[in-house]
Write a protein that binds this DNA or RNA. Structure first.
Lengths: 227, 227
DNA sequence: CGTAGCCTTGAAGGTGATCAATGTTTGTGG
DNA sequence: CCACAAACATTGATCACCTTCAAGGCTACG
């Protein structure tokens, strides 16, 4: 068992043996950029922990405009809630962004170890709680102009990654993905971000986004700045 | 302890003594229409179960256009997730729609009984799961035209209430509230619903909404019908 | 060096927000 | 039981913000 795993927030302060039982049957898996961890509507027999890199949770839509429901970063748990349903299929597909490492944990282990471990469950629920409030935030911004939505998304990602390396987005994101995440179109996202680039607020090289003036981004988010 | 309480989904199959310990310190409370159960940013010292009627969870916005994050109906749990956070304030305000009865349960009871009761926690998590997928649904409809959003909201409410009395919305809703729930404006909601009324798809008297042609509503939801 | 994936730009058009005014229902106190 | 106020519903006109459609450019990689 690697140090990396033991140092995850979910396992903080746990005995090695405790962690071992929570990881019964777990399997570490390396995903290449764009690789799929699981597909929506597929039998949900495992959940996962993100160790390195990132994944996106995509809800497929009949009309082809998929929506990104969530970005999961290291330390995040995915597919845990569905483990409590008796039988079920995943509601979303999970796709890696960049090289990423995840830990696949079988449903049985969830039922036999996680659900019996109050502290672990508390921590899982805490993660879910923050996800929930994030949805609330998003929902409260439906009527808000696009630039503010994009700003929110960016800030949310940086906040969650926590690293004070800070101003560089932890994941490679295409404009299309940003659009899918905020519920807009590539073109509109491009227009907004181009204008930010010109104002020197951000700098992008390829899928890499760097925030140069966080204060400005926050002003946009709060509506003070139009940009 | 009333029969009504014991018959709630969360308590299904539980012994009376078990239910009693889960309700340690609980207090039944009658709320009048529009009465507030708790306010956002207030110390979260209890969570609640809806017994009768309904409540709305409102996220206040600085700009005054509040957003309705969720409608909670009988059997729903509200504020449970926040009980796992060590100390915290409610992220939303809760306001009754129509005469409603709730059961206020102290945080201590959550920590001492609920968290130790695997089955109860599973059920709470199952409720949360369905709420989560509901958010996913909503998010996947951001780019969708307003009528479909409204249709989704209506169908979701009727689905959840389950009663095959069926075609009458279980809660009194103003157009403003519908607008707040789908992220739109009163005027726009009115235009959509008026057109439905004229087509004989729905009938409204005051805050009461009755669905006359559910099939049509479903067609609108799926995009087959423009209306 | 050609293809695939992503980014960019422009023009046109639509959906819904906003503003403003008016009608209707509900509830309350005299 | 009436009168008035408050809350809710409605309608119309205007306009901003995005979406959509179309075309082209850039970069990377086999």
């Amino acid at each position: 068992m690697t140090e990396k795993i033991k140092s995850l927030g979910v396992f903080e302060g746990f005995e090695d043996s405790e962690v071992a039982s929570l990881l019964e049957g777990a399997e570490e898996k390396l995903l290449k950029h764009r690789a799929t961890l699981f597909k929506a509507d597929t039998d949900a027999h495992f959940f996962a922990l993100v160790l390195e890199g990132a994944v996106k949770l995509v809800k497929p839509s009949p009309s082809g405009d998929d929506v990104i429901v969530l970005f999961a970063l290291p330390g995040d748990v995915i597919g845990a809630l569905i483990m409590v349903q008796d039988k079920s299929t995943y509601p979303v597909s999970v796709i890696a962004l960049g090289e990423t490492v995840v830990l696949k944990i079988p449903r049985r282990t969830f039922q036999e170890s996680w659900q019996k471990n109050q502290i672990a469950m508390r921590r899982v629920n805490a993660l879910i709680y923050s996800r929930m409030t994030d949805f609330h935030d998003q929902k409260s911004m439906t009527k808000t102009p696009l630039p503010r939505k994009i700003a929110r998304q960016i800030v949310s990602l940086i906040d969650r990654y926590g690293t004070d390396a800070g101003t560089i987005l932890p994941i490679p994101l295409t404009r299309q993905e940003i659009a899918d995440a905020v519920g807009s179109t590539v073109e509109s996202v491009i227009r907004v971000m181009s204008s930010w680039s010109q104002l020197g607020i951000i700098r992008t090289s390829g899928q890499h986004i760097e925030i140069l003036k966080m204060d400005k981004v926050l002003e946009i988010l709060s509506g003070k700045l139009e940009a």
